[in-house]
Structure formats: C-alpha cells, structure tokens
Design a protein around this nucleic acid. Structure first.
Lengths: 227, 227
DNA sequence: GCGTGCCTGTGATCGGGCTCACAGATTCAC
DNA sequence: GTGAATCTGTGAGCCCGATCACAGGCACGC
C-alpha cells in the first residue's frame, strides 16, 4: 500500500489528532499497514503484547475464543483502537482478536508509542481517555449482565450497538452488522435459542426487524422500556 | 490534619511515584484530606465529576446504589484511586461511592490533575496504566459472569479478592473484609440465599471458613478448580 | 446452478437459581 | 445489659432459560 495512503489514514485517526504533522509522519514510518480477511486471527492468547492496532475499515471481534460459549468482550469498528492493554506491561494476550469483516488496520509498536507519549502528553491523554471510555462502557455492561432478564439484555445491547454504529433514517436505526443469533448470545450471555425467542417476540411487537445482514430498530424509544 | 502528614501520604502513593518532590509539594497544596465514616457517601449519581480520590485507609464501595440488587462494581482498598472517570469529561457521576470501613482519603481537583499531566507525562502514563488494569480486571469479570455457575462465580471472586487484599498465613489466605452474603451476591449477580448455599457447601468441603468479619480461604488451589 | 454447510425457527424437557417466608444468631446502639 | 436491627441458615415452590433434537431456509463456494 502506498505510503501516502497510510499517512492519510493516520491523519484521520481520532487518536492521533493531538500530534503535529511532523509527529504523524514519524509515526507513519514506524507502523505497518495490514489487510486482514474475514475469519483470520490478528492475535491469540499467549501471543506477545507488543503492538497496538488502529482499525481503519472492517470489524474485529475480541473474545475468549472458545468454540461454544465464546464470550465476546468487544466488537470494534473503523476508528477504534484495540490491543491497547499492550500499553500496560509485557504480559501476553489473553484473548482472541478475530476479523469479522475484511479489515484494513495499522499496527503500532508498543515501544514506539510509549516514546511518542513522552514527547506528547496530549497523546497520552487521548489514550487515557480511550481507556476510560472503554472502562465506562464495560461497567454499564456489567450492570446489564447482573440481574437483568434476557429481554432487557438483548434490547439494551441492541441500543448500545445502535448508539455506536447505527445509521439513523426515517424508519428507525439500522445497525449494519452481520451478527448471527449465536454471537449475539455470546455477547450477552444467553443461549442461541433464547436469543431467537426474544428476537421473535421483539419483531412481533414491531420493535425490531432482522435479516442476516443487519438489524433495524424500528422503535428505539420503546426498546428502551423493555424489562 | 497536619500538612506534613498529608505530604507523607502523597509521597507514599503509588500513583504519584512519578512526580518529583517539588511536584508532590504542589499537589499537596491543592488537595484536601478527608475523613469519612462507615455508611457515608462520597458521591452520588448526578454529582459533578470534578474530583479524583486517593484512598489512604479504609474501604470504599462503588455501586449502582439501588436498595436491593445494588450491583457492586468495585471494592477499593488503601492505595487505590477512584472517581477516575472524572478524567474523561464533565459528565456527572453515575454511581454511588460509599464508605464501607472508615476511611481517610485525599481529594484531587480534576483541572489540577490535568495540568500536572501536561508537565509530567510519566504521571499521565501512571494513570493510563491504572485505567488499563481496571479494564483488564473488568474484562475477566465479564467473562466470569457470563455462562459460569454460582459456585464458580463465588469461588473465583473470592480468589480475586484474596489476590488483591488477602493476607497469606500458614492456614491459607485471610481476606480481611467485612462482606456480608448479600453484598457478595451483589458482586457476582446472585441472590443472597444462593450465596449462602454455596458458602455452606464450600465450608463443608473444607475450602473456606467464614465469619462476619472476614473470609478465610483454606485451600486456594482447590478453590480454583471449582466449576 | 446446485449442493453442502451454516443459520434460523421451534418444541419438549430439565434444572439451577430466584422468591417468599420465617427462625435463630450476632452485633450494635443506647 | 437489653432491645432492636441486621445478618445467617434453611425449606417449599416456581419459573426462566439451558439443553437437546430436529426441520426448514439461505447463501456461498465450486
């Protein structure tokens, strides 16, 4: 991939806004651009944690990687960063990062990033913010998971997905994610069959529409009231 | 409280290791030292997020604050930081911070901290690390909560608590926390009665001993194998 | 374009954990 | 020291969601 393209990507990354153009150029020299196809793994448990990734296009799933009951910890979309725990220490990965939709991404060396932060506190603050937002999100997720019913878990999770990645139009919000019922179950801790029942019910009540390609929330307001 | 005492506390705080003595002194000028007693609230949902707290002594509980089914998000001990999401933005608190055991703590102004970070990237990195560790911990907690049985949830949660705050002796590990069965339930998403049944079983099997003051893990190794 | 997987839809059955209800045991406040 | 409040222990019954089993439907690869 042409170097100027890579630079373009870097310039448009939220995380790197804080950098000067000169700094961006230096980042550019030290990153690798990758294209990774659906189904491939970016890292596995036990791999060294020496890189951080910037996701340009596509979708990545972070999960525990078990065949069945593969707990999904996060779904990542263009503009997201992942593997950021490499910032902390040398301990190896303990999750699987798998490509769900063909991706283009940028690999950033750990040491390099630490060095950049020394020079640019603003960049450090961006990363702190990023982690903080993740933390906040994960907390609300814990709240969702404890004590809430299957209906509530799914309704609220759909709303979360919509808030992040949904496209609003005159018929509600479209979530352009190919997410099968099994995966949705792994995201909220329910069996695939249960997810089916719940979705069926939500469809009947006119709250959502589903296809294999995407999910449409017809009435986010009502969905929010589901218990 | 005497100023030199406050400085002493600051000097021994892990978070602030990165600062020079001069910087510590300037922090000292800008912090307030508080003593808060059991049962008091430090902040409530809706309160402004303009402070970060350093916990010197005692125990603080971060939770959703509902009367029943008060989801516990974190228990904090001496040396811990909390309220750190104030770093992100101005959005108000959305949890309750309640004192579980009498505390001494230090309140640090948000703007002040941001300013310090500008001057000391190392401090920023400390905070990033802190958030990263919280993030990692919360992820493993999500994994625990989804799909795992009541026995496993409790056994693993006890091990987590022991890892952080336990005191090892020749009869296992002592967790010096006054944690009743109801709260333990709120920590893992189980009814109080279920917690009782599980603890009863673990006691019978010689894995733990409980009193109202604390919990002793007689055999962490066996506890780890509980499914 | 056709077959072979993968995904969705649905029923029967089972069981873990919740709810409700109450009795005893501790601890705490005064 | 005594009463009130809180916490623990335990049983009966129920219900949500898991598991198992299988029938169609799509979609993608060759």
């Amino acid at each position: 991939m042409a170097a100027h393209t890579k630079l373009w990507y870097l310039q448009h990354f939220r995380l790197l806004e804080a950098l000067t153009d000169v700094q961006k150029r230096s980042v550019e020299k030290m990153t690798r651009m990758l294209e990774v196809k659906r189904g491939q793994r970016i890292y596995l448990p036990g791999d060294p944690s020496d890189q951080i990734f910037l996701l340009k296009t596509g979708v990545v799933k972070i999960s525990t990687g078990g065949a069945e009951q593969d707990t999904i910890l996060a779904l990542l979309y263009p503009g997201d960063i992942f593997g950021e725990l490499a910032m902390l220490d040398e301990s190896p990965r303990d999750h699987v990062a798998e490509v769900v939709e063909d991706t283009v991404l940028c690999a950033l060396n750990r040491d390099m990033l630490l060095q950049m932060i020394q020079q640019s506190p603003a960049l450090g603050y961006q990363i702190t913010k990023l982690m903080g937002l993740r933390l906040r999100r994960l907390r609300t997720r814990v709240e969702e998971l404890l004590f809430k019913s299957a209906h509530a878990r799914i309704a609220h999770t759909l709303l979360d997905l919509a808030a992040d990645y949904g496209v609003k139009d005159d018929d509600g919000v479209l979530i352009p994610i190919r997410l099968n019922q099994g995966d949705l179950g792994n995201l909220v801790g329910l069996a695939r069959e249960t997810v089916n029942i719940v979705l069926q019910d939500l469809k009947q009540r006119g709250l959502v529409e589903t296809s294999r390609q995407n999910i449409r929330l017809k009435s986010p307001e009502l969905l929010r009231t589901v218990v």
